[in-house]
Write a protein that binds this DNA or RNA. Structure first.
Lengths: 178, 178
DNA sequence: GTCTATACTTTGATAGAC
DNA sequence: GTCTATCAAAGTATAGAC
């Protein structure tokens, strides 16, 4: 991927994490990336929607891998892996001034009712996350769905409370119930 | 509450559920409520932000009561209550064309980084929900936090998958782990 | 309390020179 | 590939008649 393209995606990602998809303008993406409007449209002729889809796909894969790595590093026990997942998420929100650690859930909720392309991209990412988590949990797909939903909901709670405690509480409660 | 004020809140609520806070314009609120701009600003001099806070507070209390009623009606067993909560949520999203059943989580995530008044209003609602759920679960606040986070995350998953199944899977997995 | 008209800004997107 | 200039539409908010 070209450097310019990567800079646009990173800028859009950072802005989506703070202000969401609808709360981020293309103007802000150009300012944050240091590129003029024309360059942005050269790399993403589909405009903001195409940028959104690319952000969801690129960072969706990245964060999926990152979380799996953290869980595996916590050992073979299911409880320890679940605990590591939520404690890690709590640490990220606390060190990042309660910016959303990941834009996908926020974008998904915003656009689901009127942007099929973006909504479908989010759905694909969530399916992969759930499949990957289930593989780590002896195929328990329902509980894998709980993990993904709880971490997304936990981001909301921790963001408005300005504390990692909700995410940690979720990790405690779920790791005791594996 | 005056009828006009109520119409504005209901219109804003319905639009927030579909398009989120930033995705809803004041113009759309006037059209959906059938009221002119002047009336809206007469009742909410603080504009969109004041409407947002009122929507979060009013419907936050309403939905909290509604969910508690569904859970209590499911009997005294914890597992049955948890199951009823998520099955009820799944039924609502399915019958409502996958519109967000409740705008608070979506608004919270969108505005947490730049609108303190709205963010705090969301935080207050979530605290009350968690307290109320904990009271139904013999004071288990961590698991009450799981329930709130999982239902919010489940809304996201069900919305983009256009299926109530993620919410139902969460209900199955969690009710088996009370 | 209700309504029309409008001021001012920001939005997503395009044209065309370099 | 990069950049400047600009458009038409949509955004929030206000003024003031009724």
């Amino acid at each position: 991927m070209s450097d310019t393209r990567q800079r646009i995606l990173q800028a859009a990602h950072d802005l989506f994490c703070r202000y969401g998809y609808n709360g981020t303008s293309l103007k802000e993406i150009t300012l944050q990336s240091g590129l003029p409007t024309g360059s942005v449209y050269h790399h993403f002729p589909g405009g903001k929607e195409e940028i959104g889809v690319a952000v969801v796909q690129h960072f969706g894969a990245l964060y999926g891998d990152r979380v799996l790595k953290v869980m595996r590093a916590a050992g073979d026990e299911r409880g320890a892996r679940v605990r590591a997942m939520f404690d890690g998420a709590a640490a990220v929100v606390e060190s990042g001034n309660y910016v959303d650690p990941c834009p996908i859930g926020g974008v998904a909720r915003e656009v689901a009712s009127r942007n099929a392309a973006l909504s479908d991209a989010c759905d694909q990412v969530f399916r992969r996350w759930i499949d990957a988590a289930a593989a780590l949990l002896e195929g328990d797909e329902a509980f894998a769905t709980v993990l993904v939903a709880a971490v997304e909901g936990g981001f909301i709670l921790s963001r408005v409370r300005k504390s990692g405690e909700p995410l940690r509480a979720i990790g405690r409660a779920l790791s005791a119930r594996c």
